[in-house]
């Protein structure tokens, strides 16, 4: 493909593009030469040929949600961009700062990319993430395609920015715009076996995928459905085979059990409920609002020194540990 050098806005105002910043399955990302804080996403030719019209309509609808355009923590589509012949090519958005959350949610890579990371810092990112998802939902937006690669975290802060927003599901002015992508190991059972583009994502389906992201971040990249002696994560997911909790059967060897044991009781029981009963029964899943409350409380309790902050605690939590504070905390543990 020849490198694109100039794009135009709706009025035909040209902008030079700088060197390509990134590339995904759907398009290429370029900064504007004169305003490097602004990026454009130019869809691949084959995507435009296949579903250019739908893409354009969706991006135009997204632009309609003006409250999100001013959200700094979401790289929301701001304007459409065109070629010299006024053919629609993609959209412009603000550049997000930060590193792929995958590099945080990985027991080896975080050391290089997030030096000094502790449990309080992870909790900070997660609280922000859940808050942003709530803001999106309040405006009729669901993520659909949950992946760590589309969440950018700024090291030494609690800032998370969401990118790749054009894949989100949007309900706007009575119309439904689907999230046409996803991966089976992040998708709840009720949405398996159907084309992603035909799905209507719900608060409960979002809550399930979010729980996997939360688990992966707190568990340094471990998927909740990684089980010793089990099948692949997708099969385990469909069966609600979650190793942690009563009996702790099938937890992989390594630091995982220690990490798990130090989580507050309510955090653990929310994961257990979501990944066992909740696998089949959407109503049993912990909601975004509940996650926000649980994580906020976890953060506060860490600040009070009630919980281990080490990323990989060297010992599991002693059985009858209630924190060094006697008052009621989330930490009473039976899991």
């Amino acid at each position: 493909m020849t490198q694109l050098t100039t794009v135009f806005d709706f009025q035909g105002q040209p902008q030079q593009l700088a060197k390509k910043l990134g590339e995904g399955g759907e398009g290429v990302i370029y900064p504007l030469a004169q305003r490097p804080e602004v990026l454009v996403k130019i869809y691949h030719e084959r995507e435009l040929a296949k579903r250019g019209k739908i893409l354009q309509e969706k991006v135009e609808a997204m632009r309609g949600v003006t409250q999100l355009a001013s959200e700094k923590s979401v790289s929301w589509p701001l304007i459409s961009v065109f070629d010299a012949q006024q053919r629609w090519l993609g959209y412009a958005m603000y550049k997000a700062e930060g590193k792929d959350m995958f590099l945080l949610a990985h027991s080896m890579l975080y050391k290089k990319h997030f030096p000094g990371l502790d449990r309080r810092a992870i909790t900070g990112y997660l609280i922000n993430l859940v808050q942003q998802l709530k803001t999106l939902q309040d405006h009729g937006v669901m993520i659909g395609d949950y992946t760590l690669h589309n969440l950018l975290c700024q090291p030494n802060s609690d800032k998370v920015t969401l990118i790749d927003c054009d894949s989100y599901q949007l309900q706007f002015n009575g119309r439904h715009y689907a999230s046409p992508v996803g991966t089976p190991d992040m998708t709840p059972i009720e949405h398996h076996g159907k084309a992603f583009s035909d799905l209507v994502r719900t608060k409960e389906s979002e809550a399930f995928s979010l729980a996997i992201i939360l688990f992966k971040c707190l568990m340094l990249g471990r998927h909740p459905y990684d089980i010793v002696g089990g099948e692949d994560p997708v099969t385990n997911l469909k069966r609600g085979d979650f190793a942690y909790g009563v009996g702790n059967k099938g937890i992989p060897a390594g630091p995982w059990y220690n990490i798990w044991s130090h989580m507050p009781h309510r955090l653990k029981s929310s994961f257990i409920a979501t990944f066992t009963e909740g696998a089949n029964d959407p109503a049993k899943r912990t909601s975004l609002e509940e996650w926000l409350e649980i994580l906020t409380l976890y953060g506060k309790e860490i600040d009070k020194d009630w919980h281990e902050v080490a990323i990989t605690p060297s010992e599991p939590k002693p059985k009858k540990y209630h924190g060094n504070n006697r008052s009621i905390s989330q930490s009473a543990s039976h899991c």
């Binding site: 190991d185 692949d232 994560p233």
Partner: peptide, 8 residues
């Protein structure tokens, strides 16, 4: 390795 699902 970028594709999130091992079964893809």
């Amino acid at each position: 390795s970028q594709s999130a699902s091992t079964t893809a």
